[in-house]
Design a protein around this nucleic acid. Structure first.
Lengths: 227, 227
DNA sequence: CATACTTTGTTATAATCTATAACAATTCTG
DNA sequence: CAGAATTGTTATAGATTATAACAAAGTATG
């Protein structure tokens, strides 16, 4: 592929996408006070191959012991480290519209150490309001705020037209990761990470599946031609 | 891969993911009243290869003419058909919490023909409230409602614990696609499509990138060993 | 209206990426 | 201490994806 990457920081994206799965599984096991687990058992629960589990983990280090397997608590701790969970990550959110407010109220993030420290908006009618114990600040204060209280992640929930401008501002003030909900592809320096949530595209893909299901005739014809 | 599919309705997922891109590009061209475009020009704008454009499109039919290229208006219309855009798709939304309300207020969907026809919730304090001109109904009425007013897509914005139950109910009443925002993997019959939006995983992947960037030493060592 | 040019749709090929298998090395267990 | 178990890693096989190549068919032009 030209534009879309298949790797992320040197790790295959397919592996990265499995990491949250491992994390959840190990959390469950830890909660059940399971002490040890083998790659075979892990694989069974993840519905993948045992080799793959070992290969995935080996990309990050050696966490198991021959003849024994993996100590659940240790492996969980290591995966949490890899994912940056439980180490308090400070975030600021820009754009306190409907979506921004929804994100600000989502407590699951905070539970894992992702803390929204401040909210910003452009709209005078929104500025000053309190959302989930935070008062919405004027976006013009964003730069000054970040200077005194740096954040690692900036969440962009603004309209598409201003998203790039906000991204630039965030980057200029030391933000290292951007969680972007605006439907534009942001340009940022190489040392800054962007994770894009494509709601519109997601809906279109669902719609695509529906339409294809309806009139699958075309494709079936194509497939028949291949035989 | 074992669990994750690489194809969607017979079409490679990589292609499906490019479709919204083509759609947006062609919309822009149509707005600028551009009449024709070649695969080479399209490819340049999409930052991919011309062969790939032709191969992508050929999966759905023959939309161009040798020696001429593609008529923008026609190709756009065809891609809109493929994606199910502009053909009024009826949706119901279940779970009018923060996220549900944000979705209900997002007008970009309606602009493309995706209409939310009704909202449902379990919470008596939410039932009866008006959101974007729709009154939130009691979720216990969901089945009866769908019987009289069928919908193609159900949007699940409920807590994870009740998501499967709601999905079952939706499917039982004829919904063919589920847009799921709850952090669980739903089980549905083969003829029903699910598109999952993983907010939590998306944030974890961003966090992963940040942490890996910080202490990239490990990986760099690994890479050096490979040389 | 004939010729040169363009560009598609499709088949073939190359390149890349992903998953599986295999095994030496190491630790556990009785 | 011997035998069983299981890792980490390298090698291999299997898909998938992107690119190239080309015949077929239309366009443009004098």
């Amino acid at each position: 592929m030209s534009t879309e990457k298949t790797r992320c920081k040197g790790i295959p994206l397919t592996v990265v996408k499995r990491l949250p799965g491992y994390q959840r599984l190990l959390s469950d096991l830890a909660a059940k006070e399971v002490e040890r687990i083998s790659s075979r058992e892990l694989a069974a629960k993840m519905k993948i191959n045992a080799s793959q589990v070992r290969q995935d983990l080996s990309l990050f280090g050696s966490f198991g012991q021959q003849g024994y397997g993996y100590r659940v608590s240790y492996l969980l701790a290591e995966i949490n480290k890899i994912l940056g969970i439980n180490t308090e990550t400070k975030m600021v959110l820009v754009g306190a519209g409907h979506l921004g407010r929804a994100i600000a109220n989502y407590h699951n993030f905070a539970r894992r150490g992702f803390i929204i420290e401040a909210l910003f908006d452009q709209n005078p009618q929104v500025i000053g309001k309190t959302i989930n114990n935070l008062t919405v600040k004027d976006v013009r204060e964003l730069g000054a705020y970040l200077t005194t209280a740096p954040a690692e992640i900036g969440i962009i929930c603004t309209p598409a037209v201003v998203a790039q401008e906000i991204a630039d501002l965030l980057v200029r003030h030391g933000v290292k990761g951007i969680w972007n909900f605006a439907p534009v592809s942001l340009k940022v320096p190489a040392n800054v990470c962007v994770e894009h949530v494509h709601l519109g595209e997601s809906l279109m893909i669902l719609s695509f599946q529906l339409k294809q299901g309806e009139e699958a005739s075309k494709i079936q014809k194509k497939l028949q031609n291949n035989c």
